[in-house]
């Protein structure tokens, strides 16, 4: 079963906190005692989804591990904005080695903890979509295949943002990046390419795979907690909008993540040993235009001469996700 929203306490579990919930039912993020794994003063852009997603996830992992956590981090925005000498934002033991080796570094840490008999210490690895789907993919697959005791978290902002917004294998079709410019007969990123990392992770048959967004905190925290309660290789793919790379307003970060889920473009689900065991249903279904329009990377699809056929193809992707993952409730 997936995360079960509390149906009705004014805001239920939609908001970060809810004074009407029993303390045990409350989120990690509402607590004044949350670990703030990434401290203030980090240099992420205004409205950074990754900074938020990382704090959500690592705070939850800290809560689940009773503070006994070590994090490995791939090169990328998260690393650069959090640890430029002489200041670090991390409040957990943390290491950055390289762009493409984070899952292996984490394996090494987990092995060290095991050999030292420190069972209580848990290991997370984290990286962006480039570090995960592209350059770090070999190490990721190896870590999965060996079922090493690591929770790998991918913060997916759909491109190489740190280097100036280039395409990754997680960049969606039609999106403008610095290497998929909106020119020529097929403007933006092409259709039919790209990796579905969560499904590839599932194909490894690892104990736990889940997706989440920064718009559904409670679901995200539930999944981190769930993942932390399992040993072996686990994969969590978190959708984190990037105002810089997407050309969106800094205040729209969560809204866009919500729209990605509500349109069906980003299915939110969890899987155990390769089988989908739960999905977060769409609550207020939206057309993909609602998601695409606020982002300048899709601006070439709109305007005076909108590319309706391209938008229709994107809608078809959303519709296929909805069918495939059964994202709509029966009653609609």
């Amino acid at each position: 079963m997936s995360y079960q929203p509390v149906k009705f306490y004014q805001t239920g579990t939609f908001t970060v906190g809810n004074r009407l919930l029993a303390p045990v039912e409350r989120s990690v993020q509402q607590s004044e005692r949350r670990s703030n794994s990434i401290n203030s003063g980090h240099r992420a852009c205004q409205g950074c989804g990754e900074a938020l997603g990382a704090r959500y996830a690592i705070d939850a992992a800290m809560a689940a591990s009773n503070g006994q956590l070590i994090a490995a981090n791939a090169t990328g925005c998260l690393e650069v904005f959090s640890t430029p000498y002489p200041e670090s934002s991390w409040q957990v033991p943390w290491i950055h080695s390289l762009f493409g080796n984070t899952p292996a570094v984490a394996t090494g840490i987990a092995a060290a903890m095991k050999v030292k008999g420190r069972k209580e210490v848990r290991v997370v690895a984290q990286g962006g979509d480039g570090g995960t789907a592209d350059i770090g993919f070999g190490c990721l697959s190896g870590m999965f295949e060996r079922n090493d005791d690591v929770l790998y978290i991918c913060y997916d902002n759909q491109g190489y943002m740190n280097t100036g917004v280039q395409r990754s294998s997680a960049t969606p079709p039609a999106a403008r990046t610095a290497t998929t410019m909106p020119v020529g007969p097929e403007p933006g990123n092409v259709f039919g390419q790209g990796k579905n990392l969560p499904e590839i992770a599932m194909a490894h048959g690892i104990p736990y795979v889940a997706t989440a967004t920064v718009a559904d905190l409670r679901d995200l925290e539930y999944k981190v907690k769930r993942a932390m309660n399992v040993h072996g290789a686990r994969y969590l793919h978190i959708f984190v909008p990037c105002p810089l790379g997407w050309g969106s307003q800094s205040n729209d970060t969560i809204r866009l993540a919500r729209l990605a889920k509500e349109t069906g473009l980003f299915p939110v689900f969890e899987a155990r040993h390769g089988e989908v065991t739960g999905v977060l249903k769409i609550r207020r279904k939206q057309a993909v235009e609602e998601y695409l329009k606020p982002q300048r990377r899709f601006a070439h699809l709109f305007g005076n001469d909108p590319h309706t056929e391209v938008i229709a193809r994107i809608q078809a992707i959303a519709d296929r996700n909805i069918r495939k993952y059964n994202l709509l409730d029966e009653e609609g």
């Binding site: 080796n101 292996a104 090494g108 030292k116 070999g138």
Partner: peptide, 23 residues
């Protein structure tokens, strides 16, 4: 812990992680 890794890149990376964690 004897770990059969998937590449030399991973081999050194696992060693990095292990060493940084005090092993």
């Amino acid at each position: 812990e004897f770990i059969n890794v998937e590449s030399e890149f991973a081999a050194m990376s696992v060693a990095i992680g292990a060493s940084a964690a005090g092993a």
